[in-house]
Design a protein around this nucleic acid. Structure first.
Lengths: 220, 220
DNA sequence: CCACCAAGTGAGTGATTACTCACATTCATT
DNA sequence: AATGAATGTGAGTAATCACTCACTTGGTGG
């Protein structure tokens, strides 16, 4: 399953798994980097500004991260894992035993959950999406680790739904793509409008419409 | 309608409208810039590389564009206009007269048309999406010109569909968001996989599934 | 109390950046 | 052919870049 992760990836995952051994200054750097990267993009950010905003000397950054890119990856790679973490949890496999009242109920719950996650981590998501096209390591992780795991775990649940005739008969990746893109569109527009004064944006209704849209589109 | 465009925008639109008065070298710069920006991102690109790839001296770039950012905007601002141009065409308003057999037929046609456009202009789209969060001028144009025009033009057609009970009763922007995000998801994944050797991607089927998904989701 | 090492510093490094400018070339108009 | 403007050039500039390194600080184990 772990199909020989590359060393840098092992380290990153391990670093995250093994709790926060971070110095206070290091975590200040970490947070500041998230801020600046999200604000100006990776290429548009300078290590000097990150240091400044973290309240540390520029050299301190390189004490903890060999390069600027390593700092980026240490932020973004774990995010991809966290993004799919609910699907890897045991509870998720229990869908087989627990017979949900409706597909709706189950799907709604998980969609709401992921929307919540995305909104609480808007900066991380922004950085991830921005850098995905430019960082081959990230694309590799997505393709070799994230996609397969998603396909395997979620695939089983979707297969069950399909076999019960409660969901449209399409390939699992296609179904996921359609659902995910609707959610991403919702999140994207929401962040475009930000939280504004004269906002003509009824969030509850928009979210409901999005979920309904997905459900109706994926109905058999 | 034109609600007082800012000068730079006027110029850009005018420059495009008034045909190609470009020098050969200028258009070489223009094309090279599209290449490099799409490849490395705006901040990650250097004017020296653009000049090199265009086969001109670096100074030539600044003869035609005051700054690097102006070069970017000259590429990307017209793209936004072209993106919605079909909806501004006269034919589009004729939907009222011409009674389409089905909403399906009409929507399918226009969705296919825009997918085609996006695929033929992948680089431009990539640059646009990448820079939208960082260029206030672009966001302003989107908000003040693109969105309103879309809402007005497309709104009428959608209103007609809704009144005929052939489409779900949701706000126009919501309907557009749902349709557009599904299309963007399709385009994004397609470009992620690129055109590869062992591609497990049946394009025709994916496209069909996407369109069906939109139609079903927007059905009344 | 010493010795040791990781954590932290900030001045310094060469490379690269967007942009300028004095000058050369080409073009259009008379 | 002459002239003025538009186009093109590339060496030059100050600023900024990611990163290094000799050094200081602070905490921990013996």
């Amino acid at each position: 399953m772990n199909q020989s992760l590359e060393p840098w990836m092992e380290e990153l995952l391990h670093a995250e798994a093994s709790g926060d051994k971070m110095t206070e200054k290091q975590s200040r750097i970490f947070e500041a980097a998230i801020e600046v990267f999200a604000e100006k993009g990776y290429s548009g950010s300078s290590t000097s500004e990150i240091a400044q905003r973290a309240g540390v000397a520029e050299g301190t950054i390189f004490r903890h991260y060999k390069t600027k890119k390593e700092l980026l990856l240490s932020i973004v790679a774990p995010t991809m894992v966290r993004l799919i973490s609910p699907f890897v949890l045991r509870e998720f496999r229990d869908v087989f035993k627990t017979d949900y009242e409706s597909v709706d109920q189950f799907l709604r719950a998980i969609i709401e959950n992921r929307i919540e996650f995305l909104e609480k981590n808007q900066s991380l998501l922004k950085i991830l999406i921005q850098e995905l096209p430019f960082q081959p390591e990230l694309r590799a992780q997505l393709e070799k680790v994230i996609f397969p795991q998603l396909k395997q775990r979620v695939g089983k649940v979707i297969a069950k739904f399909k076999s019960e005739g409660r969901m449209i008969d399409l390939p699992t990746p296609t179904i996921m793509r359609l659902a995910v893109s609707a959610i991403m569109g919702y999140v994207a527009i929401r962040s475009f409008y930000g939280t504004r004064e004269g906002a003509v944006w009824d969030d509850a209704k928009e979210r409901q419409a999005t979920i309904d849209f997905i459900m109706k589109g994926l109905a058999p």
